[in-house]
Design a protein around this nucleic acid. Structure first.
Lengths: 244, 244
DNA sequence: ACTCATATCTCTTATATAAGATATAAGACA
DNA sequence: TGTCTTATATCTTATATAAGAGATATGAGT
């Protein structure tokens, strides 16, 4: 019988995985780069190739690395998402066309974390944050208004000009410019009535039902590093979710 | 160079997996039962135990089977969800309490598939369907109104009385009474204004923003077998989604 | 209650082989 | 000589096998 609370037996390959996560977190292997080969890692950790493989499989399951046969295993990155669909974006066109939306930054300002956001971000209420407001446009039509709150301490030097100079996705920007890697997210969806300002941006009548998506995004160790709230018209778009 | 269209190389363990899916689909191994042990399967398919393991791992990833160390590998079932949260239900209370909602059936009627539903279910427009209407209640408070459309051919003999006699989740009912196993689902979420009837059921004002969840549920071979549309108040509840 | 045997899944190692990617050497040819 | 093509070697990950030890659950016997 195992005492509740006692950490149950952890297989070797998960221990190896944990070591590798540390290397990733410490930046020993950087996004986009290849990590050492199976055999190198096997000798480094003094385990068999098969055990290293299982550890890497687990990392690949968590989307921390990507394996490419014949080439190597690469640290996952948000900077290669410009071609495909951003990994965390679930809004789609109703007609099924897989369009990559454009992003338009409306505003960057500093502020203090309100109580609820502070709780979600593990900050003390009133700690300095950055608040970005942006619009996602499908085919030039505004569909989503995002309000993105970031702990100022992690994103020192983020300005509107800096973001606009960057070519690529927002998470790619965070990753390359601030070393903050967005790994997981938890979203809570609600339906709300459009306020006047959002309605104006989205070109709908105030009071129109909008899809509200509140997201807490985390990095290594499930540490929350982003809080955002997106409001979407769902006249010609929807939020897609696959249950498996 | 591989000719486009040529089926690319398929590893042995995936072939074994496919064979096992056939056995599951054919009902050789029934929901809740144990499948043969690793070693038995290895000898049956004339491959090593390791290869069988990988095949079973793949089945477990797809939620088709569940492994229990020391006991065996069991065919996944919806009939054991009464204790835990139903696997496909994402509506949660805002206060974080993990409550299992109650289900109240309002109506069962037969009808003909309208064009859009027919398309989603791979039926011809006008083919006979069953339409169930039910309410999900959290702590006795109605939160979701579901309209569930089923191909009549697959659910012959489904009546209100029969469902109410069954103790357990709806998918458990479908599984045990009709042999239809719900494996995957694809949901499209929108925000809409409450119509008069739904508003009355949910106890909100007509026009209140509701979360609309359209679901197409599939069984083996990605064959669609259920279409449903749920309308939820999101005053004290939300739809939870983890992105990973 | 306790121990023990046994059947199960789980993990680790070791060894081969296959398949994809890439660089380099060798040869054909103008 | 210079360039193109082909063959070869050598990386990489991917797959398969076999054998042994560990962990968990169950039931039989004491």
């Amino acid at each position: 019988m195992s005492t509740p609370g006692t950490p149950s037996f952890q297989p070797l390959y998960l221990q190896i995985k944990a070591l590798m996560v540390k290397s990733l977190e410490a930046g020993e292997w950087r996004p986009g780069e290849a990590i050492p080969s199976d055999l190198e890692l096997a000798s480094r950790f003094s385990v068999s190739q098969g055990t290293v493989r299982r550890a890497i499989d687990a990392l690949a399951d968590d989307n921390l690395v990507v394996r490419r046969q014949g080439k190597g295993t690469f640290v996952a990155t948000h900077t290669e998402e410009t071609v495909s669909m951003p990994r965390f974006l679930r809004i789609r066109r109703d007609d099924g066309v897989d369009e990559h939306p454009g992003s338009r930054l409306l505003d960057v300002r500093r502020g203090k974390a309100p109580a609820d956001v502070a709780r979600a971000l593990d900050l003390k209420p009133g700690e300095p944050v950055l608040v970005l407001t942006r619009v996602l446009e499908f085919g030039g039509v505004p569909v989503v208004v995002d309000e993105i709150t970031l702990p100022a301490a992690l994103f020192r030097g983020l300005t509107r000009a800096k973001y606009e100079a960057y070519q690529g996705s927002m998470y790619g920007f965070f990753e390359t410019q601030f070393g903050v890697r967005m790994l997981k997210a938890r979203e809570r969806l609600k339906a709300i009535a459009a306020d006047a300002r959002t309605a104006a941006i989205l070109g709908v009548a105030p009071g129109t039902p909008l899809l509200a998506v509140e997201r807490v995004t985390t990095t290594y160790g499930d540490r929350p590093v982003e809080w955002r709230r997106g409001l979407s018209t769902t006249l010609h778009h929807h939020y897609l979710n696959e249950l498996g």
